[in-house]
């Protein structure tokens, strides 16, 4: 990543979120959770049913990732982002429930950009397919929910200077060329 990347310690604060703009290069340090298709379905069902969740969403960062199994001497295997748009139907609900940022790859539905602006949240982008490289920024990993989902289980990751770009900021801005301004 470029040298001018901004270092951010998690959890994110409202101040920091407000300062960030789409296209900014950022390095995250702290705790994030992995969750993808199946975990999202369960999290949102549990929210709707008023059941307890395996993780505290308030102030959390969700990484759309299903890593490869960790070999014995390693913390985790390859761990790059999956396509975010598959989580678009769930994301606004999770932002409303306290998620502050999501990390994935690719464009998303307009409703996600609107939800980021409405709730003061971010959509961050990690480089898709750079699974080996991104695994080097993960210091610790532990399954903390939905263990039966295997690679799709929720993992708590401790990351150090994990490189991302701001995809959607909290002001309606987008990194993607061709995205029009929000009304």
């Amino acid at each position: 990543m470029s040298s001018e990347a901004r270092q951010i310690k998690l959890p994110l604060t409202a101040d920091v979120i407000a300062q960030l703009r789409a296209g900014d290069s950022v390095r995250l340090s702290g705790a994030i959770y992995t969750a993808r298709d199946a975990a999202h379905q369960r999290l949102v069902s549990a929210l709707e049913a008023g059941q307890q969740l395996p993780i505290d969403l308030d102030g959390s960062v969700i990484y759309y990732c299903g890593p490869t199994p960790a070999p014995p001497e390693r913390v985790i295997g390859a761990a790059g982002p999956t396509t975010s748009s598959r989580m678009d139907t769930f994301a606004p609900r999770l932002y409303a429930a306290g998620v502050q940022a999501t990390i994935g790859k690719g464009q998303r539905a307009l409703q996600v950009r609107r939800a980021c602006r409405k709730h003061g949240c971010l959509y961050l982008i990690a480089t898709g397919g750079a699974g080996a490289l991104l695994s080097r920024f993960i210091m610790h990993a532990k399954v903390v929910g939905y263990v039966d989902l295997g690679p799709e289980a929720i993992r708590k990751l401790t990351v150090a200077e994990f490189p991302v770009l701001v995809g959607y900021d909290a002001h309606g801005g987008s990194i993607f060329p061709g995205d029009e301004d929000l009304d």
């Binding site: 990543m1 490869t68 295997g77 390859a78 790059g80 750079a130 080996a132």
Partner: peptide, 28 residues
């Protein structure tokens, strides 16, 4: 600049995957 940064990351990723035997992508 952003295209260069990403392509540099992918080349570094390929090197790491080969040298350290970490899968190139988590979607194997």
């Amino acid at each position: 600049q952003v295209a260069r940064t990403i392509l540099d990351q992918l080349l570094e990723n390929a090197r790491l995957a080969r040298d350290e035997r970490i899968p190139y992508c988590q979607d194997t």
